[in-house]
């Protein structure tokens, strides 16, 4: 499964990364190398094997529904890139 330049651009967009025009070839090549190594996985038949998402066989612990967090806005926004009236500012959101 070789990845091509167009796919690299599409994946970069999904990941919201911009790849410099001059770097696309190089990036594509390095991804091809990595995916080539990854393709070793296809050598083994894994049919019927339950995928393992966590190393340990544990179950989710539940939290009591109690308010434990108080207003920390000032502290949490202290180093935010842009705020006004307690809001985080971003370029206009168009729906």
């Amino acid at each position: 499964m070789a990845i091509d330049r167009k796919e690299v651009e599409a994946v970069a967009h999904l990941a919201r990364l911009s790849i410099d025009e001059t770097q696309i070839e190089r990036t594509t090549e390095s991804l091809q190398g990595i995916l080539g190594m990854i393709d070793q996985m296809q050598a083994i038949d894994t049919k019927g094997i339950e995928p393992m998402a966590h190393p340990l066989d544990a179950v989710q612990r539940l939290r009591a529904d109690e308010v434990t967090e108080t207003d920390q806005r000032e502290k949490l926004q202290q180093h935010a890139p842009a705020t006004e009236e307690g809001l985080f500012l971003v370029p206009k959101v168009i729906e």
Partner: peptide, 12 residues
């Protein structure tokens, strides 16, 4: 960035 690209691709 390389690993983000690989990971994004693997999940796509």
């Amino acid at each position: 960035q390389r690993r983000i690209l690989v990971g994004t691709y693997a999940l796509s």
